[in-house]
């Protein structure tokens, strides 16, 4: 049976240019993520994990090569079109949580839905459901700075998955969390992946996370060194 590709990278190259210095970050990466995958990119610092994550999420543009999200090429999209793509198809989880400090937990979770133009009642219902699923609905009316790191990251996950995106890209989501909190968070994301078929791709060093994903893509010097199914 052919699985649906949600994100594809074809012969991706990325070179950062600072003055006359050219720093290659990706050197021809081909990778495809299918719907419902729970995958991670691993590799040493500077191997290109974050760069690839940003290119796949439309946060940056490749020097050459192509990225397809839900089958549509995105390299030629304008900034405004890329913003729309991120809004409609991609969820992000960041290492530093990056919640909006002046919005409550519920408002943070509803933020993307508000940008999508959903009516208040619907976005409130949808956001509360996801917050409940992640066990943070009791903090709905609190501001993020009142929450622990683990709780904030759960809210960040809620914000990423609330609009049912094609893929959730998470950059070192457990790096700032202790072991128990990390494992709990990973289990929650795993459950969302299994129950909703949400596709997750992590960029991580964290072996606790690497032990729980289905697929690990090893990057070295901007290339895929190994792409293995681990479960």
């Amino acid at each position: 049976m052919r699985t649906e590709a949600v994100v594809e990278a074809r012969e991706l190259h990325k070179v950062y240019v600072t003055g006359s210095v050219r720093t290659p970050a990706l050197n021809g990466v081909d990778v495809t993520l299918s719907r419902g995958e729970f995958a991670a990119m691993a590799g040493p610092s500077g191997s290109g994990k974050s760069t690839l994550l940003h290119l796949l999420g439309g946060l940056d543009k490749p020097t050459s090569g192509e990225v397809l999200v839900s089958g549509a090429p995105i390299s030629a999209l304008s900034r405004a079109q890329l913003a729309q793509l991120r809004l409609r198809h991609v969820g992000f989880v960041f290492q530093a949580y990056n919640l909006i400090p002046v919005l409550t937990v519920l408002e943070n979770a509803m933020f993307v839905l508000e940008l999508q133009g959903l009516p208040l009642a619907r976005r409130r219902k949808q956001a509360l459901a996801v917050l409940a699923e992640l066990g943070v609905d009791k903090y709905a009316h609190q501001f993020p700075n009142k929450l622990s790191g683990g709780e904030q990251q759960r809210v960040a996950v809620a914000r990423a998955v609330v609009s049912d995106p094609a893929i959730v890209l998470a950059d070192e989501p457990t790096a700032n969390l202790d072991t128990k909190t990390s494992l709990d968070l990973i289990d929650l994301m795993r459950r969302m992946n299994e129950e909703h078929k949400t596709t997750f791709l992590f960029a991580t060093h964290d072996t606790r996370l690497l032990d729980r994903v289905d697929r690990v893509i090893h990057l070295e010097d901007g290339r895929i060194a190994r792409d293995e199914r681990v479960r």
Binding site: V90, L115, R159
Partner: peptide, 10 residues
């Protein structure tokens, strides 16, 4: 920047 990253129009 976070707002823009999440897809907020300029």
């Amino acid at each position: 920047g976070i707002m823009l990253a999440l897809g907020a129009p300029r």
